[in-house]
Amino acid sequence: MRLLSISSGKVAPLFGDHHPDYKSVPSAIRKTSISNLESCVQIHINKLGVQDDEQADLNVHGGVEKAIYVYPAEHYVFWNQLLTRETKKPTSLKHGSLGENFTIEGLLETEVFVGDKLEIGDLEFAVTKLREPCFKFNAALGYKGAAKAMVQSGYSGWYLRVLKTGLVSAGATIKLIPGPRNTSIAQQNQNLLMKRNQKDLWD
């Protein structure tokens, strides 16, 4: 298990400056890799996440309990195939395109439980919850069914609390330290799927 990429982003208009209805909607969902296997730059991680990374709506993103958003690289094949089919445009997403801070390999939602700890390099994190996508995720990927596809597929990724701050770079190994193991991220996602299906809560 290892860290493939660290990404960050700045708050900007989600739909650009010329959309008649949404030009005032801010978002930092569009992330850019700042440390990767081609350039293993050390990045400072503080209690609120990646240094200089921003979040537009702190009610639903960021903060101590959602300081780092992690996403498995294994799911990129799914998204590239889905978007290529649905948008009729060849798609090859770069790490960070799903809004994640850490792109990792070797660890999936079925294997991660709330309360587990992850040691990444010299740093330590606690798993807190899954990511719940909204209309901003649809906009970032240019496909109105993206949020629904994320929940239905179970490819949600998860948030981390930072327990030990410091420097880390892409290429760092990941060690999983099991917690109580009561609820996995995959189980949380199933609960969210049932809730949305019952109430028809799709953006």
Rank of each mutant, 00 (worst) to 15 (best):
P72N: 07
F78L: 13
K94H: 13
F78I: 01
H95A: 13
L108K: 11
E65W: 01
V60G: 00
T110F: 01
H61G: 02
G106M: 09
N59K: 15
G62Y: 02
N101Y: 05
G121N: 10
E74Q: 15
E86G: 00
W79D: 09
L107T: 01
G99R: 00
E119C: 06
K88S: 14
K88E: 13
G121H: 05
V114E: 14
E105I: 02
N101D: 08
H75Y: 15
G62H: 04
G63I: 01
D122L: 13
K88M: 08
P72H: 03
L108D: 09
E74R: 07
D57Y: 12
E119P: 00
L123M: 07
K94I: 12
L107Y: 04
T91G: 00
N59A: 14
L118C: 05
E124S: 15
E86C: 03
A56Y: 04
G62F: 02
G99A: 02
Y76C: 04
L108Y: 01
V112E: 04
I68W: 11
E105Q: 14
K117D: 05
V60N: 03
E109T: 06
V70D: 02
E86T: 05
L82D: 06
Q81L: 06
Y76E: 11
G115Q: 12
L58S: 11
Y69Q: 13
L82P: 02
T91S: 12
V77M: 08
P90H: 09
E100C: 05
K117W: 02
T91V: 14
L83A: 01
V64L: 14
K89I: 15
V112H: 03
T110D: 15
E105A: 12
N80E: 11
Y69V: 05
W79N: 03
T87Q: 06
Q81G: 00
G96R: 08
Y71H: 11
E86D: 00
T91H: 05
Y76T: 08
S97K: 02
P72T: 07
V60R: 15
T110N: 15
G115K: 11
E100Y: 03
V114M: 10
Q81V: 08
V60A: 01
V114R: 12
A67T: 06
E74W: 06
Y71D: 04
G99L: 00
H61D: 02
I68C: 09
I104L: 06
T103W: 03
A56G: 10
L118M: 08
H75I: 03
D116E: 08
I120Y: 02
E124C: 13
G121S: 05
P90W: 02
A67E: 07
T84S: 15
V77K: 15
Q55M: 03
I68P: 12
T87G: 02
F78Q: 05
